[in-house]
Every structure is written in C-alpha cells, then in structure tokens.
C-alpha cells in the first residue's frame, strides 16, 4: 500500500537508494523485479475490486424474478389496469377502435421516436407499456378515467409535462423516447404473461 505511494510522493528517495549506490545493471534488475511485482500487485488489487462491484449488480434471485400474469377478461374496452412487474408499474390498456385508429394514422414523420403502432402491440386492442416516463422515471397519469391524459389521449406525465399518445409514444415534452414495451406474450385469448 505504502509502496504504491512511493513513486508519486518521494521520487527523490528512490533515486538516492538504488542506482546511486550500485552499478547500473543491478539497478535494471531491481527495476524489472519491481515492475513485475508492482504489476502483479496492481492486477491483484484490480481483481479484488470486481467482486465488490459485481455484488451490487442484480442478484440471481432478482434476475429470475417471476413473470407476472395478467387476466384481461375483466378489462372492458376503454379501461386500463396497472400491474406490478419487476417492481415497476406496467400499463395494460384495452384500446377503443378510435384510439387504435388515432395511433395507426399518425404520420411517422411527426414523431420524435418514430415507431409504427404495429411494432408496439401484439394484438391491436391491447397496449402494454412500462408505466415509467422515459424522461426521469415518474409514473404518467392516464390510467384512471378521471386522469388528465394529455393532448394526445394517451398519458400525461405531471412531473415535467410529457405527453404520450394512445400507442404510448412521446409527442410533446422533455421525454426523449416512447414508453418502453416489456417482453410479453399471450398465453390465452384473455391472459398475457409479462417477462
């Protein structure tokens, strides 16, 4: 530990000790040894740091977290539910025909993060997105019928005023990208499994 301080803190000492007292070749040999020992020690210290850092990454049980099943039978047209998946809210919305049409007819050129609606849904009536604003992580409003849904009929993030449309795409405000679509699949006509 103190040894590694040496080069920066006391360059004059190293000089006074080694080469001054002995022949140049002895100095070279020691320098080589020192270099080898020093690099080995550096590798060792580096290797020690990694387990500590990696221990802060998600643990195996967290990565294996159960997927969430959502029963769609109860969700009537125009309604939405919020379910928890990996500690985050997931919005599941049963879209109306008008909402689907709005989502599909927007010219892609108008979008900040161009993505056709078809790339964001498995089946047209069901929109499943992560309920996390891509700006700074707030949960946007728009799930309850009484909520403000913003200017595009989707969601509105009250933190910094981002507006999302009926496909969960960003239309106005500071958020850079569309609401993320989690990995999910239909296990039956009335049930999806997220994750």
């Amino acid at each position: 530990m103190a040894d590694t301080l040496a080069p920066s803190s006391s360059p004059e000492m190293g000089g006074a000790h080694g080469e001054g007292a002995h022949g140049p070749d002895q100095g070279t040999k020691r320098d080589f040894l020192k270099l080898a020992a020093g690099s080995f020690a550096a590798v060792g210290v580096g290797a020690i740091v990694w387990p500590f850092i990696h221990s802060m990454n998600p643990a195996k049980d967290v990565l294996a977290l159960a997927s969430t099943d959502v029963n769609l039978a109860h969700i009537t047209e125009g309604q939405a539910v919020t379910v928890m998946w990996r500690g985050k809210p997931v919005f599941v919305r049963h879209r109306t025909a008008q909402e689907i049409q709005e989502a599909e007819t927007v010219p892609l050129g108008e979008l900040r993060d161009p993505q056709p609606d078809s790339a964001r849904v498995e089946r047209k009536p069901w929109l499943v997105v992560l309920g996390v604003c891509t700006h700074l992580g707030c949960v946007p409003l728009g799930q309850r019928p009484t909520d403000a849904r913003g200017d595009f009929g989707g969601w509105f993030c009250p933190c910094h005023g981002s507006h999302y449309d009926t496909s969960g795409r960003i239309r106005r405000g500071p958020a850079p990208t569309n609401l993320a679509v989690p990995e999910y699949s239909f296990t039956s006509d009335t049930q999806i499994r997220i994750g």
Binding site: H17, A21, K29, R30, L33, A36, A37, F40, A41, G44
Partner: peptide, 20 residues
C-alpha cells in the same frame, strides 16, 4: 497460485532492497 508468484516477486524485491 497468484499469491505465491506475487510473494516470490515481492520477496525478491525485498532482498534486493535490503541488500543495500
């Protein structure tokens, strides 16, 4: 194994330094 090699190197450096 790593520590044994590092130990050998360190010991060599130590001997060299103490030889002075």
């Amino acid at each position: 194994l790593f520590l044994i090699i590092l130990g050998g190197l360190t010991y060599a450096v130590k001997r060299k330094i103490w030889a002075r």
